[in-house]
Amino acid sequence: MAKWGMVIDLDKCTACQACVIACQAENNIPNSDPEAARTGRNIHWMEMLPMVEEEYPHLRMRLMPRPCMHCEKPPCIKVCPVNATQISSEGIVGQINARCIGCRYCTTACPYTVKYFNWFKPKWPEVMEHQLNPDVQVRYIGVVEKCTFCHHRLQKGRDLARYEGRELGPDDYMPACVQTCPADAMYFGDLDNPKSSVAILSKSKRAFHLLEDLGTHPKVTYLSEGV
C-alpha cells in the first residue's frame, strides 16, 4: 500500500503562486471577493505563507507554499463527531461532504489551518460554470472542505493503469500543484517506496516539517534554503 507524500524544496521555489492558482482551477474552489477576503472567509487549499524573521536590514523572509499536511496522526479526525473527515489507508486525509454537519471542530483543531468552512453558497456567474472541473464535486454552504492531494487524479490514474493491465506507476498520479510547478520545486510520490524521489528527499539534511513538535507527523516535507 502506498503512502502518499509531498516534498517542497524552498531553495528552488520562487513563490510564484502557480500552485495556488492551479489548485483553485483544479478543485472548483469558489471565487473570492473583497468581503470574503476581509473577513478571512476566502478559501485556499494551497496558500503561500510569509514568515518574517529578525530585523531590518538583516531580516529574512521565508515564503512557504502550504497545502494540507496530510498528517499521519491528524488532529482533525479525532474531533469530528460524525466521521466526516478520515485518513485513508494510503494516508490521504479526506473530507466527506455529505456527512459533514458543519460543526467546525476540525477547522479549530487543525494546527495548520488548512480546513475551510463554506460560509457562503458557492456561486459562479453563469458563464464561469463552464470551467468547472467535471472530476471534482462542487461543495455547498455549511460544509468544511480541504486539500485532497487531488485524490480524483489518483482514481483516474489507477483506472488507467488497470485498463492497461499494469501496476500503478510512480508518475501515474500527481496533484495539480506539483504538475504545474515552474521551478520543479515540488515532488510527489510514495513515501514507502525507498526509491521514490520523495522518500529520498525527505531524508535530506535540509528536510523539516511544519510544527513537527506537535506530533502530527506531517507527510509534507520542506527542504530549507541554502547549501
Binding site: 510564484c16 503562486q17 492558482i21 482551477a25 456567474p125 458563464v127 464561469m128 470551467q131
Partner: peptide, 16 residues
C-alpha cells in the same frame, strides 16, 4: 509547466 497567470487563463475566457 505554467505559472499562476497561465493557470488563471480560463477566467479570462469565461469572464462574465
Amino acid at each position: 509547466r505554467l505559472c499562476a497567470r497561465g493557470q488563471a487563463g480560463l477566467q479570462l475566457l469565461y469572464n462574465p
